[in-house]
Design a protein around this nucleic acid. Structure first.
Length: 649
RNA sequence: GGGCUCGUCGUCUAGUACGGAUUAUGACACCGGCCUGCGGAGCCGGAGGUCCUGGGUUCAAAUCCCAGCGGGCCCGCCA
């Protein structure tokens, strides 16, 4: 007898029993939906109902006497998992599980389902596209952006285990001015071969080029301000020039050769700004030379990204080029269709989308959860020169995604909430209400450095690669200190999964709606960080099982009567609940927390109670089975967030 | 100016969707203990709190509502 969700089985029994008692004692009352909550303490049983507090008022009775009545009417004879039901406090009804049976059910279920345990399948195994990472191919991925792939990958793993057909997409944003800036610099340098990791190489070219072009532009603006005698503008421009000059000085010091040669080459052009705009235009128009150039530099950068992502075991099923949607008819088709809707108007030669009107006309305020005073700003769809904007192209991309999936989840920072809302409203405007309802913006909060925001344009960032290197290096020092007897190869291997695990954990374990301030301490302190702790605990469980060196023959589950053991059983039995919640509410941090709690409990158990040398063979067998189950569940939880569960470390 | 979002011991953090129990979760740092026991990257104990503030709803509020305060973000012919 096994169950894919033991705790839920117990809960259902309790619900049925209570609902029956209710019908019997109070037939005149319409039976409410019975929700049971976990008790604050194992002394109060495992599940509790506060139903009597609600009923008391309606019936004008005391909650406690109602509870007594109901408890008296409960017939649990045909249910196997309920040990007893009692009333407590001012009117709670507490349900106690029969641990002998429940332990057997739980442990046998884990053992049989093994690496599938906990992964309760959805009733609707739809296809879901998860778009994540999508860092512009201009510079290396920095630590602020790294929260995205780690959250996205954890979500994808969780949804996949939930039974959805998940496809992971990377949207390559190669259209737009910034791509032309880097391509312009790259071309000026004579399309050099990378002398280091490709994305880092491209990133330097981008930052220096962007800085030089910006200064050039600002100087022209200054001349203009002088010419028209605008003192205000002059002050403003001068301030900006000062800022960029200091950035230039920094860059010149960091990359003297690159800086000098780009400065000389860019200096040859009368108007670099115009060259870049021309390139941008040519790329959107699909001119072969522009295509060749921008794709080449973008590909270089992506090559670096692939390397980084391979290292942390984040994978993608599809790399989608934004430019492909521009070159095909898809973007213009969307525009044509939008133009015929009543939500688009033309102003000073640009095409505007009236998002607020969509909300009004289709009465979406409540459905979208918008506040009373929330007015959605309009969105510019097409520039005066006829080129499109980012969100416009994203509409076409989104429609394409819905040709391949029933649900679309975009892992995108919360700073893009407005654009994502406008995009959703555009789907409504186009008549794709169903798409709009299955379009999810998974918004996460920013990662910042203490004191300032990371800026790729200014070259102020800590790269993800750098963080990974540091983490692995630091882990190596720890391993060498703690396990000097290991071979060099083993040390390296352990340092790798500990370091990478710590980084993944650090960026997934905080609620994604909360901001994270990046400190090295947060990632590298292996005392604070739970990933190495959980990994260590997993290895410890494996070690016991190795030492035991036997399969439990006759586990006496009824002997697992210590409070610690019971808490562990309850934790194991509740893993499916936690998993389902994490999947349905898109909360990967729940999994990280769960793993940590389980590890904590196991360590306490480990210190307090002997497993192999337990008083009797039956108890020892039961504790070995418990340890096996803990090891399996810890492994399953870690896998969901992409952290290695090691047998040794 | 408007909108969105976050605010919980010194620091970091769980709980907030779906209000419940005397005692608000855990970690770091701090104080004091535990290695001749299955892995000490561990365990046990102690101290530390206006759950941002003020109202309201309720038998019951960290959780819901209203009004504020503080930080971050957005309101571009950028992405």
């Amino acid at each position: 007898m096994i169950s894919e969700n033991p705790f839920d089985q117990f809960r259902r029994e309790c619900q049925t029993v209570l609902s029956n008692a209710l019908k019997k004692t109070l037939p005149e009352i319409k039976t409410p939906a019975i929700t049971l909550s976990k008790t604050p303490n194992i002394e109060y049983g495992q599940l509790a109902s506060s139903l009597c507090f609600e009923l008391a008022k309606k019936l004008n009775q005391k909650p406690l006497s109602l509870a007594e009545h109901l408890v008296g009417a409960i017939d649990k004879s045909s249910f196997k998992l309920i040990e007893k039901v009692s009333c407590a406090g001012a009117g709670y009804i507490n349900f106690y599980v029969n641990f002998a049976k429940f332990s057997a059910l739980t442990l046998e279920s884990v053992k049989q389902l093994k690496f599938d345990y906990g992964f309760v399948k959805t009733a609707k195994p739809n296809k879901i596209i998860v778009e994540h990472t999508s860092v512009n191919p201009l510079h290396p991925i920095h630590i602020g952006q790294a929260r995205n792939p780690l959250l996205g990958d954890a979500l994808a793993r969780i949804l996949e285990c939930r039974g959805y057909k998940v496809s992971r997409h990377y949207y390559i944003d190669d259209v737009g001015r910034q791509s032309s800036v880097v391509a312009y610099g790259y071309e000026k340098l004579g399309r050099p071969k990378p002398t280091e990791k490709a994305d880092h190489f491209v990133g330097k070219i981008y930052t220096v080029t962007s800085c030089l072009v910006e200064i050039n532009r600002l100087k022209k603006a200054r001349d203009l301000a002088i010419a028209v005698h605008s003192a205000d503008d002059l002050v403003k421009v001068n301030k900006e020039i000062d800022e960029w000059m200091s950035i230039a000085a920094e860059l010149k010091e960091k990359y003297p050769v690159l800086f000098e040669s780009l400065m000389a080459k860019i200096g040859e052009d009368q108007n670099p700004e115009e060259e870049i705009n021309r390139l941008n235009r040519a790329y959107e128009d699909g001119e072969p030379k522009a295509k060749q150039l921008i794709r080449e530099v973008s590909d270089l950068c992506l090559e670096g990204f692939r390397e980084t992502m391979k290292r942390v075991e984040v994978t993608y099923d599809s790399w989608d080029w934004e430019s492909d949607f521009v070159w095909s008819t898809q973007v213009s088709e969307v525009l044509q269709k939008l133009k015929t809707s009543p939500f688009v108007y033309s102003e000073k030669g640009v095409l505007e989308f009236d998002a607020e009107k969509v909300v009004q006309v289709l009465n979406l305020k409540g459905k979208l959860g918008l506040g009373e005073n929330h007015e959605v700003s309009p969105l510019t769809l097409v520039r005066a020169d006829g080129t499109t904007l980012y969100t416009t192209r994203d509409i076409a991309y989104t429609l394409w995604k819905f040709k391949h999936a029933q649900k679309v989840i975009n892992v995108i920072g919360m700073e893009q909430s407005l654009a994502q809302l406008q995009l959703k409203l555009a789907l409504y405007a186009l008549g794709y209400g169903e798409y709009a309802e299955n379009f999810v913006h998974f918004a996460y909060n920013l990662v910042t450095l203490p004191g300032y925001k990371m800026s790729s344009r200014r070259g102020h960032y800590i790269t993800f690669d750098n963080v990974l290197d540091e983490a692995v290096q630091r882990a190596y020092e720890e391993v060498s200190k703690r396990s000097p007897q290991l071979s060099e190869k083993e040390k390296r291997k352990i340092a790798n999964f500990v370091g990478l695990g710590a980084v993944r954990y650090a960026l997934v374990d905080v609620d994604s709606s909360k901001p994270v301030i990046f400190t090295w301490e947060r990632v590298l302190n292996f005392e604070t960080n739970s990933a190495p702790y959980v990994q260590y605990t997993h290895a410890r469980a494996c070690s016991i099982l190795r030492k035991a060196a036997r399969e439990p023959e006759k586990p006496a589950f009824e002997l697992l009567s210590e409070k610690l053991e019971r808490e562990l059983i309850l934790n194991l039995a509740s893993f499916p609940d936690t998993f389902v919640e994490a999947a349905e509410y898109l909360k990967p941090n729940l999994i990280a927390d769960y793993a940590n709690v389980l590890a904590d409990k196991f360590n306490t158990f480990y210190n307090a109670l002997p497993v192999i040398k337990a008083e009797s063979q039956g108890l020892s067998d039961a504790r070995i089975t418990l340890t096996q189950a803990i090891q399996i569940v810890m492994h399953n939880a870690l896998t969901l967030i992409g952290v290695v569960a090691p047998e040794k470390m």
